[in-house]
Amino acid sequence: MRSEWGLWMSQAQAGDAVAYERLLRALVPMLERFVRARLHDQQAAEDVVQNILLALHRARHTYRPERPFQPWIFAIARNSVIDSLRKQKVRRRFEQSLDGVPDPSQDTPIGPEPDSISPELARALAQLPAAQREAVELVKLHGLSMQEAAERAGTTAGALKVRAHRGYRKLRGLLEEMRTDP
């Protein structure tokens, strides 16, 4: 079956949607194994697999049928994994800075405390998707550790990290927008 991947890819380059779908579906399990062997975060692994599929789609014109397919796809996969590991490293450094925040009691109410945050931040928080808002509130406003926040949100620490990270990024964009266009 692997020998057909190159053929399917060259057919996809010509616009054959059936061959392309067959190829992508055949690649997903192999890419999942490849990424999971290198990343321990299940959620991040799924994100990386999706990034590889996107990169494959954008770089599909660089595949040449006379050359083997696997070194081509593994080069894309390897680079996506390296990018993800770099981002994780930066994120971990960022999350370590929360260690100094005092640990709140277990009965801290869930949800933002309107008196303790600025109206601008409250407005921006309200615009976040519910899952990201919850992650940001638990970690940043209530100072819970990732593990505690994940238990409260009913998810894993890895998934909560990703949600919080996306929430921070979106929040930063929203606050910048508000400052430039009050």
């Binding site: 616009g15 392309y20 992508l24 599929l53 789609h57 599909r60 014109h61 040449r64």
Partner: peptide
């Protein structure tokens, strides 16, 4: 995967 397949267009190598 479905979105990528629907976005597929022929490309020059």
């Amino acid at each position: 995967v479905a979105e990528l397949v629907s976005d597929l267009e022929p490309v020059s190598r």
